[in-house]
Nucleic acid binder design. Structure first.
Length: 487
RNA sequence: GGCCCGGUCGUCAAGCGGUUAAGACACCGCCCUUUCACGGCGGGUUCAUGGGUUCGAAUCCCAUCCGGGUCACCA
């Protein structure tokens, strides 16, 4: 059996859209799940849109998510070069071959003329004005230096049918097909043309791309046919959609929020979680109950027939949940390393018991950037009202809170070894001595220590992190607040 | 507008002629708990509509409706 070869062919725009990333992922998975090769090819035929450093963004992203390519501009390979601008001279001969065979022709129409062909809505294609220019006329125009492009001659009647691995058989009337440009007036090939030539030369077996290309696929096939080449297997992917403000959906774009890989990382999503999530957008495993996958597991589970046909709405909430799952699974030391920048944001260079923090935070934080907001009260005690001391479930009231706090202060002043287990034993013992339920004692302690109702940990953890001196100071403050409120 | 594709809970989805129509996120209850969470348990008239075909349809066919994509010297 022929080796499966797929290719990721991005344009260097400096931005990696999640849709593109998902295409790369599926291309990688299709190849790797069948022991094939995954190729990276840079499509920079649009000289007007070149962006400095944009190819680095592509390398970096692929590396970060672990989609290692077997061949590409940076690693080489048997079918290079892998950058289209470096292959520029290779395309024209193929186009000329088509002209000689009567399958393509020179077109001298100006851009102005072409634009005048569009209707009010910008719709309307080329009228094949130059398709049958007499040979002498072509020669004359060529010699006079008139700018030209090369167009492919589409059949005027009949229809073209092809089979897509996910959408099945699709038929398009040939009269719907425009005489597409193969070589642009700047000498560069168009995307469509370069794609076919390169995919063939690089022995690509599966062409994987978004289904916005579905209707133009016959043009590709006609090209393969014109050259007498084997047509690759087409795998068109359902689009990723975003929800608009008015409730409708459309192709995911910047107005829907973070859509670039880098933006998502910036927003606090882990690369592994992003990959895992987008793998499930438009594909489901045979065992559809598993949702958490490493790249390796995806490679083992991936099957083309699990790709769905209908577009999928990108759900940030589910991604967030999944990100939290990855955070919870992390070994504690790894977690602390990832969270450290955020810890520093709160505590500066002060040394804290990071383990206690990790224990509090790891099971509840969904995205690391939430940390500073959760921990702000450590840095400075927030302003709060004495009403926070009231909690029905804990049986905490304005009346018993001062009693509890006073007792706690007395008791805790005696503690030398200021650590969670010691504080824990002491306080629970105290509650027993006082003859109240744990909550009744711990509620006011936690409120006084944190100054806010919701905290990322319990009273003991907060006290431990605060340190003895600051803890007692805050409890004292809480007590005063209650006493003034009582008067 | 022409052409192409799609339509199972709010979202991602399984399903491939016979199922009590899985699962996950979100949501709502309850339990646990020193708070919020986490965790546990439970909840929801979801097969776009109308016609066929069939003993039997979410699954096959047709129509309608809705949604999306595409009609560039962009990829």
């Amino acid at each position: 059996m022929k080796e499966v070869r797929t290719r990721f062919a991005p344009s260097p725009t400096g931005f990696m859209h999640v849709g593109n990333l998902r295409t790369a992922l599926y291309e990688y998975l299709i190849a790797k799940s069948q022991g094939g090769k995954f190729v990276l090819r840079i499509e920079d035929t649009d000289q007007e849109r070149l962006v400095e450093g944009a190819t680095d963004v592509i390398y970096r992203t692929l590396e970060e998510v672990g989609l290692t390519h077997d061949e590409g501009p940076d690693v080489g390979g048997p079918y290079g070069p892998y950058v289209q601008s470096a292959r520029k001279d290779l395309y024209l001969p193929y186009a000329k071959q088509l002209i000689e065979e009567g399958k393509a022709y020179y077109c001298f129409c100006s851009k102005e003329r072409l634009e005048s062909l569009h209707d009010a809505n910008g719709i309307g294609g080329y009228d094949r004005h130059c398709r049958d220019l007499p040979e002498e006329e072509v020669k004359r125009l060529l010699e006079s230096g008139t700018p030209w492009v090369i167009r492919q001659k589409m059949p005027l009647e009949g229809s073209t049918t092809f089979t897509d691995a996910v959408f099945g058989e699709i038929t398009i009337e040939n009269c719907e097909l425009e005489d597409q440009i193969l070589i642009k007036s700047d000498g560069y090939p168009t995307y469509n043309f370069a794609n076919v030539i390169d995919d063939h030369l690089m022995h690509i077996t599966h062409v994987v791309r978004g289904c916005e290309y579905l209707t133009s696929t016959p043009k590709y096939n006609l090209l393969y046919e014109a050259f007498g080449w084997d047509v690759p297997t087409y795998v068109h992917l359902p689009l990723i959609m975003g929800r608009n403000e008015d409730g409708s959906v459309s192709k995911l774009s910047k107005r829907h929020g973070a859509t670039g890989f880098a933006d998502l990382v910036e927003a606090g999503y882990l690369p592994e979680a992003i990959v895992n999530y987008i793998a499930l957008l438009g594909w489901a495993p045979k065992d559809s109950t598993q949702e958490l996958f490493t790249l390796d597991e995806l490679t083992k589970a991936f099957r083309i027939d699990g790709i769905s046909k209908s577009p999928a709405v990108f759900d940030y909430e589910k991604l967030t949940w999944m990100n939290g799952e990855y955070l919870k699974k992390m070994p504690q030391d790894v977690y602390i390393r990832h969270a450290m920048p955020y810890f520093k944001e709160v505590f500066g260079e002060a040394e804290k018991d990071w383990t206690v923090l990790a224990e509090m935070l790891q099971p509840r934080v969904l995205k690391l950037p939430e940390i500073p907001g959760l921990l702000g009260f450590f840095k400075a005690l927030p302003e709060y009202g004495s009403d926070l001391f009231v909690n029905k479930k804990s049986k905490a009231t304005l009346e018993n809170a001062p009693v509890m706090l006073k007792a706690a202060i007395e008791d805790l002043s005696q503690v030398e070894d200021w650590r969670v287990p010691v504080l824990h034993d002491n306080l629970l013992q105290l509650a027993q001595t006082l003859g109240v339920k744990n909550g009744t004692l711990l509620w006011p302690v936690r409120i006084a220590a944190a100054g806010q109702k919701v905290t990322p940990g319990g009273a003991m953890e907060i006290l431990a992190l605060l340190g003895k001196e600051e803890s007692l100071r805050r409890l004292q403050l809480g007590l005063q607040k209650l006493e003034t409120a009582a008067q």
